[in-house]
Each structure stands twice: as C-alpha cells, then as structure tokens.
C-alpha cells in the first residue's frame, strides 16, 4: 500500500486480470500519474451539487413489460470457445 492506497495486486484481483510483474510495475507507475492528474476534481466545491449519472434525463423510458423473442441458443453459443449439448463448458467454479 502506498500513498492514495494504490495497490495494483489487489486491483488486479478485483478486476480479474492476471498481471506479470513487469506489467504490475508499469501499471503502478501509470496509475500514480493518472491519479495525480484526476485529483484536480477534488479541489472543486461540490457541496449541495447533485451527481449526474446519466445525461439523457428526458429519455430513460421503460418499455412495456412484454415477452419478446430472445437470442436463439445456437446464436448465443456461436462464439463460445467450448460448448457441449447446448451449454457453455467451463472449468470448475472456484478461486485460484
């Protein structure tokens, strides 16, 4: 852990990306620079300012809750690296 709590190994684990030690070193340096750059937002006074999560305030309409055709199974599977009997094949669920 360093200044700003930047811990590349932990972030990589959260993001599910295996990093080589060289990449860890490089990304650690890059992220330090990026965090230094984005820190300028912290100087802005945002007391009583509501956050914006979506600029399209006028849209966001829900469509009627009607049953529609979904993607056919074959289409959903057509890009799977491994499949069998209409299912995706995966290694056992578990960490490490």
């Amino acid at each position: 852990m360093k200044k700003d709590g930047l811990d590349i190994k932990y972030l990589a684990q959260l993001a599910q990306i295996h990093l080589s030690s060289q990449e860890e070193k490089q990304l650690d340096k890059d992220l330090q620079n990026i965090l230094h750059f984005i820190a300028i937002i912290r100087r802005v006074n945002t007391k009583e300012v509501e956050p914006t999560f979506q600029v399209a305030k006028d849209v966001q309409m829900s469509r009627p809750d009607q049953k529609e055709k979904s993607l056919p199974r074959e289409a959903a599977l057509q890009n799977a690296p491994q499949q069998k009997n209409g299912y995706f094949i995966s290694k056992p669920i578990g960490w490490k």
Binding site: A15, I17, L19, A80, P81, F88, S90, K91, I93, K96
Partner: peptide, 22 residues
C-alpha cells in the same frame, strides 16, 4: 468462457478468466 479469447492456463473458471483477460 462465453465468447472471446480463452486462455489455455488456469484450473478454475476464475483463473481461466483472469488468464484470458491477461
């Protein structure tokens, strides 16, 4: 697992994901 590159490494689904993304 569902689409895109799959790594040959990893013995669990999570490890396959982490190596594939790597």
């Amino acid at each position: 697992i569902r689409f895109g590159w799959q790594s040959k490494r990893g013995k669990t689904a999570a490890a396959v994901t982490a190596f594939s993304r790597a």
